[in-house]
């Protein structure tokens, strides 16, 4: 099946400032795609370009095979969007906004809508001016989940939600996935992305620096090894694939090792008589920090 969304060497300038330098990635049907990066990296700018709110300076974005700028209207019939900062017309109630947004997409207030209002514990009769940030987000989330769109785009959707509501959000995203829908989830909450996303793109200063599944990225990265052996570990420290070697005693050490060399390293260790061994795969946080610190050629943290 063709990709739901492809972004091809997208660039965006605001005057002289180049917010997006080179963005390329695609989302396959039925997958939850994570989009992570620090504040100001260009996540929201990318998403606004995907929605046709911003006009790309160069490059191209297509959704459902159509151009994100030129065919915005027909694309939007099949997508749902929750911005990071939801601002609602102060004089409308939450319920009015939800119904209005659904109607724009040619849909109706359904039983599903009522169910979502209930699980998100939203008081729909309140005027938007009295809602907190989290409640405004809930309004947009209810409308988005209720519309059962083929592609849902969430831009840091849980930044104002309490942990309970975050759970609800994650449940609803998984339900979308089970229904075969695609999701683009921008976030800087790594545990959220780790738990839900099939594939991830890491963006830094307007550039995509890595795309792939978490497993693939782990492959590219290093595991942490804590080991105690019978014989001294001096030979291990000299191996080219071993980094950040720290010995507590001659026979006890912590170090990181390139993922592809893990097997060989273990073989070498076993010759020294392993008494205790713990290997930890890199967390997304490790990955993230590692990529982020790559700036200036530094590889270690």
């Amino acid at each position: 099946m063709a990709d739901v969304l492809t972004v091809d060497h997208l660039q965006k300038k605001f005057g002289k400032f180049q917010a997006l330098k080179d963005i390329t990635f695609s989302i396959h049907p039925g997958e939850v795609f994570g989009f992570i990066g620090p504040n100001g990296a260009g996540k929201s700018t990318t998403i606004r370009t995907l929605l046709g709110i911003l006009r790309p300076t160069a490059g191209r974005a297509t959704i459902f095979g159509q151009d994100a700028w030129a065919d915005a209207v027909s694309i939007h019939k099949r997508i749902a969007y929750v911005p990071g900062d939801v601002n609602l017309w102060p004089n409308l109630s939450g319920g009015e906004v939800i119904d209005f947004l659904l109607r724009l997409n040619g849909q109706k207030h359904s039983d599903r809508t009522d169910e979502l209002i209930k699980v998100f514990a939203l008081d729909v009769r309140k005027k938007a001016r009295t809602y907190s940030k989290g409640n405004r987000q809930k309004v947009a989330l209810v409308a988005a989940f209720s519309s059962q769109a083929d592609l849902s785009i969430f831009d840091e959707p849980t930044s104002g939600l309490d942990p309970l509501m975050e759970e609800v959000f994650q449940r609803e995203v998984l339900a979308l996935k089970q229904a075969g829908k695609s999701v683009l989830l921008s976030s800087h909450i790594l545990s959220e992305v780790e738990r839900m996303c099939d594939r991830i793109a890491i963006i830094r200063q307007g550039e995509i620096i890595e795309v792939g599944s978490l497993a693939e990225m782990r492959q590219l990265s290093r595991s942490t090894v804590r080991v105690t052996t019978q014989q001294p570990l001096t030979a291990i420290e000299a191996l080219p694939s071993v980094h950040q070697f720290k010995a507590k005693t001659p026979t006890q050490a912590v170090f990181s090792v390139d993922a592809e060399a893990l097997g060989d390293t273990i073989t070498a260790l076993s010759q020294l008589g392993i008494t205790q061994l713990i290997t930890t795969p890199p967390t997304l946080e490790d990955l993230f920090l590692r990529y982020y610190n790559q700036e200036g050629g530094k590889d270690e943290q």
């Binding site: 939007h76 601002n87 724009l104």
Partner: peptide
């Protein structure tokens, strides 16, 4: 002005030209 206040962002994501 409504654009600056962010009110229209949800509208733009809807099929409204």
């Amino acid at each position: 002005t409504d654009e600056r206040k962010g009110y229209l962002e949800l509208l733009h994501a809807a099929p409204v030209s």
